[in-house]
Amino acid sequence: MSSPEDRCRLVLIMPEQAGEDGGREALAAALRGGDVASVILPQYGLSDADFQKRASVLVPLVQDAGAAALIAGDSRVAGRVKADGLHIQGNAADLAEAMERHSPKLIVGGGGATERHTALEMGEHRPDYIFFGKLDGDIKPEAHPKNLALGEWWAAMIEIPCIVMGGTALESALAVAESGAEFVALREAVFGAGQGPASAVAEVNAILDEKAPRFAD
């Protein structure tokens, strides 16, 4: 699998409802579609036991495809299913605790940065990435303007990579790329797509290959 390191790359967010197989077929199809940097698996409303059961099926799929599997939920589940990392949805203190306990053994990234001050507080703990937006925040075709603005500000100032949540349209990935963000996160645009997850991932990568700005060395 090619890894276009010189442009914005795709991060997948697993949806809450993904069929009786817990999303296995949909995720496998998406990963066949082209380059995916990582997959974030949110816990949503699942119990730890049910979440662990789902993650134990999905995490190996992600890793076999050469992507990083990140757990957004109970850190014990991440350890039990041998995930690559943790997505922390709390505040700077939660992120600091997770960094102390799990980094550098695991990738640790921070979500919940809704404005500049919070983002900078989180950045002080040197996470592996900062996430702008909500994991289920793709409610419109386009990425939220506030998240795009935060991503553009962060990418211009800070070396820590950022992920910006896109919208429900595949084309929203380009606006994220143009902000300078290293990664665009998509959920419904891929898993709710009429053409299927594989075609959606292929199309996103084609858009980014053709039109996304390249990072300077």
Rank of each mutant, 00 (worst) to 15 (best):
P4D: 12
R7L: 13
R9F: 07
L10D: 01
V11C: 09
V11W: 04
L12V: 12
L12D: 05
I13W: 02
P15N: 12
E16A: 04
E16T: 03
E16R: 05
Q17I: 07
E20G: 15
E20W: 07
E20L: 15
D21K: 07
D21G: 07
G23N: 01
R24C: 02
A26C: 02
L31Y: 00
L31V: 03
R32W: 01
G33S: 05
G34F: 00
D35A: 15
A37P: 02
V39G: 06
V39R: 04
Q43A: 07
G45E: 06
L46C: 01
S47T: 09
D48A: 06
D48R: 05
F51T: 00
F51Q: 00
Q52F: 10
R54H: 07
S56L: 09
L58M: 08
V59W: 03
V59Q: 03
P60Q: 09
P60Y: 05
V62G: 03
D64Q: 14
D64N: 11
G66K: 06
A68I: 02
A69N: 09
L70G: 10
L70N: 09
L70M: 13
G73T: 10
G73F: 11
S75Y: 14
S75H: 13
R76K: 07
A78N: 07
G79V: 04
G79A: 10
G85E: 02
H87C: 10
Q89T: 12
G90M: 03
A93R: 05
L95S: 05
L95I: 08
L95E: 02
R101S: 13
H102I: 08
S103I: 13
L106T: 03
I107Q: 04
A113C: 12
H117S: 12
H117R: 12
T118G: 11
E121R: 13
E121S: 13
M122K: 13
E124C: 10
E124V: 05
P127A: 14
D128R: 13
F131T: 10
F131L: 13
F132V: 09
K134C: 15
L135G: 03
D136H: 04
G137P: 03
D138V: 05
I139E: 03
K140N: 12
K140G: 09
P145Q: 06
K146D: 14
N147C: 07
N147R: 06
A149Q: 06
W153R: 08
W154Q: 13
A155C: 13
A155P: 09
A155E: 11
A156F: 05
I158F: 15
I160K: 07
C162N: 14
C162T: 12
C162F: 08
I163V: 15
I163P: 01
V164Q: 06
V164K: 04
V164D: 04
A169E: 02
E171C: 00
S172L: 00
L174C: 01
A175R: 04
V176P: 01
A177R: 00
A177G: 05
S179R: 07
A181Y: 11
E182G: 05
V184P: 00
V184Y: 01
A185M: 08
L186H: 06
R187A: 15
A189C: 15
A189G: 15
V190L: 09
F191G: 00
G196Y: 02
G196F: 03
G196I: 02
A200T: 10
V204C: 11
A206I: 04
I207N: 01
I207D: 01
I207E: 02
D209S: 14
D209K: 09
K211A: 15
